[in-house]
């Protein structure tokens, strides 16, 4: 049984002018445990919406998302929140670090709503991403590349089974982007998490063995 299974997933938004726009229309998708997959897609192809549907941040209009044997759409909101916190690590394009918190606190905050605060693990993760001397730094005191590393550490804070990465190198230069992707892949492998990454950057996609075109999976983007 795959870790993530999607069937007949559909999401439509209503524009201010009243017109409806289907952003995701996906008959089937699956991702196995420990699997590593990159999805390619241009801007507006529904990449972020697709990941939000998987994470339970958005509710689909139709279809099923099953993660670790639990069907997301059948869960109540707080149960989806809990499942997201304990099973999914999310790396955002803009990192989404909380500016009022230190690097360590950002990672601890990731744990707070998941499997519980574990100081030792948080420090280990930050050391693993090369930030052992930046624990008490605020995100705005870090370079963009370093902020990305904090985001990676936070995504792994709850020992997730699935890491979702949404254009994780969108704000990085080429050298940092290559380094960041390598780090994400390595740390996911080390923790046994499956990785689903979406990007439109050929350099990033070239680092993956498995790459699929989102437009072939998503009929709305075709």
């Amino acid at each position: 049984m795959p870790l993530l299974e999607i069937t007949d997933l559909r999401k439509t938004f209503i524009a201010p002018d009243g017109a409806s726009h289907t952003v995701v229309d996906m008959p089937a998708f699956a991702l196995g445990e420990h699997e590593e997959l990159a999805l390619s897609g241009e801007s507006g192809s529904g990449k972020t919406t697709f990941l939000h549907l998987i994470a339970g941040i958005l509710r689909p209009d139709a279809g099923r998302v099953t993660l670790a044997g639990r069907e997301m759409s059948a869960l109540r909101e707080h149960e989806r929140d809990q499942l997201r916190a304990t099973h999914i690590g999310y790396i955002f394009q803009t990192f989404n670090l909380l500016q009022g918190y230190t690097c360590l606190e950002n990672v601890l905050l990731g744990m707070k709503f998941g499997r519980g605060v574990d100081h030792a693990l948080a420090i280990t993760l930050l050391k693993r991403v090369g930030l052992s001397d930046k624990l008490d730094h605020s995100p705005r005191q870090l370079s963009t590349g370093q902020q990305q590393r904090v985001a990676v550490a936070r995504a792994l804070a709850n020992r997730p089974q699935l890491v979702l990465a949404d254009e994780p190198t969108g704000n990085l230069d080429q050298a940092n982007a290559r380094e960041a992707i390598a780090l994400i892949r390595e740390t996911c492998r080390e923790t046994g998490a499956a990785l689903l990454l979406v990007s439109h950057a050929p350099d990033v996609l070239a680092q993956f063995e498995q790459v699929r075109d989102l437009s072939q999976l998503n009929r709305a983007a075709a």
Partner: peptide, 16 residues
């Protein structure tokens, strides 16, 4: 709003 959205994305319940 963004800070709240981040906390929610990390798993914080609405009630929290």
């Amino acid at each position: 709003r963004r800070e709240i959205a981040i906390l929610r994305a990390l798993g914080a319940h609405r009630s929290t």
